[in-house]
Amino acid sequence: IRLYEREDYRGQMIEFTEDCSCLQDRFRFNEIHSLNVLEGSWVLYELSNYRGRQYLLMPGDYRRYQDWGATNARVGSLRRV
């Protein structure tokens, strides 16, 4: 999964292949505005340590956080399923 700091895949990008319990420890931002799921399925959590609202993401492109059903861009952790 590739996470981007801004909409439309702009700004700083980070790629994950494994679970991350605290996004801010690995990426200086806690807001993700766009992403690409390259393979497999992922769950994004609004808070760190896999807490808060959850969003199940299938392979595909998500140009804005609204595309995955979120009401804001906050992402605290993520897990591959």
Rank of each mutant, 00 (worst) to 15 (best):
Q24W: 06
E39Y: 03
L57T: 09
W68C: 11
Y4A: 01
L47P: 00
R6E: 08
I14K: 05
D61G: 10
S48T: 04
N72P: 11
D67R: 03
L23P: 08
W42K: 00
Y45C: 02
S34I: 00
E39M: 07
F29T: 04
L38G: 10
L44D: 00
N72L: 15
D61W: 02
Y4D: 13
G76R: 11
Y9S: 15
W68S: 12
S34W: 00
D19R: 04
S41I: 03
V81I: 07
S48V: 03
Y45S: 03
S48C: 10
V37T: 13
R53P: 11
D8W: 04
C22L: 07
I14W: 05
N30G: 12
Y4C: 15
L56A: 12
N72R: 11
V43I: 01
E7K: 14
S41Y: 06
C20S: 09
R10N: 13
P59F: 02
F27R: 04
Y9F: 14
R63C: 14
Y50M: 04
N72D: 09
V37K: 01
G40I: 05
G69P: 03
S34G: 05
R74C: 10
N30E: 14
R10S: 04
R64G: 09
R74L: 09
H33E: 13
V43H: 04
N36A: 12
Y62V: 12
L57F: 03
E31C: 03
S77Y: 00
L35F: 15
T71N: 12
G11R: 01
T17P: 15
L44T: 08
Q12M: 13
R51N: 15
V37N: 12
Y4W: 03
A73F: 03
V37E: 00
L44Q: 01
G52E: 01
T71E: 02
D19M: 06
L35W: 01
R74E: 14
L23N: 07
I1E: 01
R63P: 09
Y65H: 14
G40L: 04
R63K: 12
R6V: 08
E5K: 14
W42M: 01
Y50L: 02
R10F: 11
A73V: 13
E46V: 02
I1N: 14
R28T: 09
R51D: 08
Q66C: 06
F27I: 07
C22S: 10
L38K: 04
D8Y: 11
F27Y: 07
Q66I: 14
M13R: 06
G52M: 01
A70S: 08
T71R: 13
R2M: 11
W68A: 12
A70M: 14
D8G: 09
L3P: 00
A73D: 14
E39S: 08
F16D: 03
N49W: 06
E39R: 10
R10C: 12
I32S: 09
Q24D: 07
T17W: 06
C20Q: 09
L78W: 09
T71Q: 04
T17D: 09
L44V: 11
E15W: 05
N72S: 12
P59A: 13
L47A: 07
G76K: 05
V75F: 07
H33I: 13
E5H: 03
Q12H: 11
L57H: 12
G52V: 00
Y9G: 12
S48G: 07
D67A: 05
E46A: 06
G52S: 01
R26L: 08
G40A: 09
F27C: 08
R26I: 02
G60N: 03
V37F: 15
R64M: 05
Y4Q: 00
R63W: 11
Y9P: 01
D8R: 11
Q24E: 11
G11V: 00
S48R: 04
L47K: 02
W42V: 14
N49H: 15
R64A: 08
E15F: 10
E7M: 08
R53Y: 11
E46N: 02
L56G: 10
D19L: 03
L47T: 04
Y4G: 01
M13E: 06
R63N: 06
Y45V: 00
E7C: 02
C20M: 07
Y45D: 00
Q24K: 13
N30Q: 08
G52H: 01
Y65L: 14
R79L: 05
V75W: 04
E31F: 05
C20A: 12
F27S: 10
P59D: 15
Y9E: 13
V37C: 04
R26D: 07
E39P: 00
C20L: 09
E39T: 12
Q24I: 07
L23D: 14
Y55K: 13
D67K: 07
G69R: 15
R63I: 14
E15Y: 04
G69W: 12
D25R: 07
T71V: 05
N30I: 15
F16P: 14
G11H: 01
F16E: 08
W68I: 14
W68D: 13
G40T: 07
Y62K: 14
D8C: 12
S21P: 02
I1T: 02
Q54L: 04
E46L: 01
W42A: 01
Q24F: 06
L3G: 04
Y65M: 13
G11P: 01
E7V: 07
H33W: 10
L57R: 02
L38S: 06
T17G: 10
M58V: 11
D61C: 03
W68V: 13
S21V: 07
E31M: 11
I14A: 01
L3T: 02
G40R: 04
Y50K: 02
A73N: 12
H33Q: 12
R63F: 10
D8P: 11
R6G: 09
E46S: 05
I32L: 14
E31Q: 14
R51P: 00
R10I: 13
Y55S: 14
Y62E: 01
V43M: 13
G69K: 15
Y65C: 04
Q54K: 07
Y65S: 12
E7F: 04
R6F: 02
E39I: 08
R51C: 08
D8H: 05
E18Q: 12
V37I: 13
D61A: 07
L57M: 11
Y50C: 01
S21M: 03
A73H: 15
I32A: 05
R2T: 05
E5T: 04
R51W: 01
T71F: 07
R74G: 09
G60W: 04
R6H: 04
R64C: 04
L23E: 02
D8M: 09
N36E: 11
R64Q: 08
G69Q: 13
R10Y: 05
E7Q: 09
A73M: 15
E18P: 01
T17R: 13
Y9C: 15
E18W: 04
N49R: 05
E31N: 10
E15T: 08
S34L: 00
R26S: 12
D8E: 10
Q54M: 02
L56M: 15
D67M: 12
P59W: 06
D67L: 06
C22N: 04
D8T: 09
D25C: 02
R79F: 02
R79K: 07
R28H: 02
F29H: 06
E7I: 05
L56E: 08
V37L: 14
D61S: 08
G40M: 04
R51S: 07
I14H: 03
G11C: 04
V37S: 15
Q12I: 06
D25A: 10
E5F: 10
I14D: 13
N72G: 09
R63T: 11
Q54S: 10
G11W: 00
E39V: 06
S21R: 08
D19I: 02
L57I: 03
I32K: 02
R79H: 02
I14C: 09
S41T: 05
R64T: 13
R28N: 01
Y55V: 13
T17V: 10
D19Y: 03
E7A: 09
Q66R: 06
L3M: 04
S48Q: 03
F27L: 05
C22T: 12
D25K: 14
L35H: 01
L23V: 07
R51Y: 05
M58S: 12
E15M: 09
G52Y: 01
D67I: 03
W42D: 00
Y50A: 01
S48W: 03
C20Y: 15
R79G: 08
P59Q: 12
L35C: 11
D19A: 04
G69N: 09
R63D: 14
L38H: 11
D19S: 04
W68K: 15
R26W: 12
